[in-house]
Simulated scan of single mutants.
Amino acid sequence: MNQLTIVGPNSPEATTSIITIQRAKLKDQHLSCEFTEQRTDDAPPRAFALTCAEQVHPDLTHALSRLVPHLCLLTEQLTETSDYWPDEAEELPAIFESFTVTGFSMGRHQSGVTLIGQRELTGGRVLNLTTPYQSFDDELATYPYTGLLEATLATALTEVEAALRGKCTDYRQLDLFEQPTTTTILPFVPTPPLA
């Protein structure tokens, strides 16, 4: 739980609120999210489901891409090799090209996660993947990279919250009937009448 401004674009006069992400899903570069918001610690949470009209910022898609190695291990799609885990700055290795993480579902009190993703098969068809629920509790964790998963997910949660507060791709729609910036006057040349 992070204490941030109320959902919507940041402004100096906005009050703070506490956001708890429950589910997030990315489809066609648009974020759909279920979350609760509290104006103060002792206020009752208000539940929201929101689909953003703007396209997500590339930071969010990057954060979700960092979850792909976990998706592959938890769904037993790939096995770990010596060069399996990429550095934060580098792109994912080629073995992950056919995989994407499209969302996640948090456990109660954000104590674990279920990752949701896809694998594009060679024929162009898509295989939907859902990991088993992975608890962050050390006593219940059966996944050896639980700490790394939790840290990587924290970055994704931060980006989802930023998207809820207005962080999106900057784009400007072009005017359909855009006027030229310079006007060229052509001389009038009369055409001879047809006989």
Rank of each mutant, 00 (worst) to 15 (best):
L176S: 05
P180F: 10
T182H: 11
G166S: 04
R165F: 04
F177T: 06
A163D: 01
A162H: 05
C168Q: 12
E161S: 15
E159Q: 14
E178Q: 14
F188D: 13
Q173E: 15
A163Q: 00
A162D: 02
T181I: 03
Q173D: 13
F177W: 09
Q179E: 15
T181A: 11
Y171A: 12
L186Y: 04
Y171G: 06
E159D: 10
D175H: 10
T184H: 01
F188M: 08
T169V: 00
C168H: 14
Y171I: 04
E159R: 12
E178V: 08
R172C: 12
D175R: 03
E159T: 07
Q173L: 15
R172Y: 11
D170F: 14
L174T: 05
T183N: 05
Q173Y: 14
T169M: 11
F177R: 09
L176F: 09
Q179I: 05
E159P: 03
T182C: 06
E159L: 07
A162S: 13
T183V: 14
R172W: 08
L164R: 08
E161H: 03
F188Q: 07
A162N: 09
V160P: 02
T184M: 02
F188N: 08
P180R: 12
V160L: 10
C168K: 05
E159G: 02
C168E: 06
L176P: 00
T184V: 04
D170C: 05
R172H: 11
D170K: 06
T169Y: 01
K167R: 15
